[in-house]
Amino acid sequence: MTSCVIYGIKNCDTMKKARSLLEQMPVKVKFHDYRVDGVPVDVLRQAMAVLGYEKLINQRGTTWRALPDSEKNIVDAEAALTLMQQHPAVIKRPLLQRGDQFLLGFDAGLYQQFCL
């Protein structure tokens, strides 16, 4: 059976949809809540290597909009990592991991392909 980890925040509506879909699939899924379990730096580094740090930061969310301009000036992966550790809600979600592969965002069709 395939095993995946989904990273995000429990109360996020998109996360709820993603988790609901995954529960219906024949896949073993572990949920990692950034607010409860912390931000896994090693996983974020792996995801940045695959997806690019720019894609991991949600610039549409309320957390991003509330940040001072000085914190929004992300010039490299280390600055992005620091920001994501300090403000986990700026990490785009859901982030789905299967082995060394990552899928960002929610798309039911892609989840079917990615997890099965």
Rank of each mutant, 00 (worst) to 15 (best):
E54D: 13
L81K: 02
K92M: 13
G38Y: 12
V27S: 05
G99H: 07
Q113G: 05
T62P: 01
R19W: 12
R19T: 14
G61L: 02
A77N: 10
L21E: 10
N11V: 04
V41L: 04
L116P: 00
E78W: 09
L83W: 09
C115I: 13
L44T: 01
L56I: 11
R93W: 06
L103V: 09
V43H: 03
P40G: 05
Y7N: 06
G105S: 14
V5I: 15
Y34D: 02
K55A: 15
A18G: 06
I57L: 00
K72L: 11
D13Q: 13
A18W: 00
T63E: 08
Q97I: 11
I74T: 01
N73F: 01
Q86W: 02
Q112L: 14
Q112M: 15
G38L: 09
Q86K: 14
D76S: 15
Y53I: 02
N11L: 10
T62W: 02
G105Q: 04
K30M: 03
V36M: 06
C4F: 00
S70H: 01
E23A: 15
R45L: 13
A89D: 14
E23I: 09
L110Q: 15
F106W: 14
D13F: 08
V29L: 11
L104C: 04
M15D: 01
F102N: 00
R19L: 15
F31E: 11
P88C: 11
R35Q: 15
W64T: 04
Q85V: 15
A77W: 08
S20L: 14
I9E: 00
L81I: 04
E78D: 15
Q101F: 08
M25K: 15
L67D: 09
K28E: 14
N73L: 12
V39E: 10
S3A: 06
S70N: 07
N58F: 04
V90M: 10
T14F: 02
L103W: 10
L56E: 09
C4E: 00
G52M: 08
T2V: 11
L110N: 12
N73M: 10
M48Y: 06
Q24P: 05
I91C: 11
G38N: 12
L116T: 14
A47Q: 02
E71T: 03
E78P: 10
A79F: 03
E54T: 12
C115L: 13
M84Y: 09
R45C: 13
R35V: 10
T82F: 07
A89P: 14
L103P: 00
P88H: 06
D33W: 02
K72F: 10
K17H: 03
N73I: 05
G61Q: 03
A108G: 00
G8A: 05
V29N: 08
L95V: 11
Q46G: 07
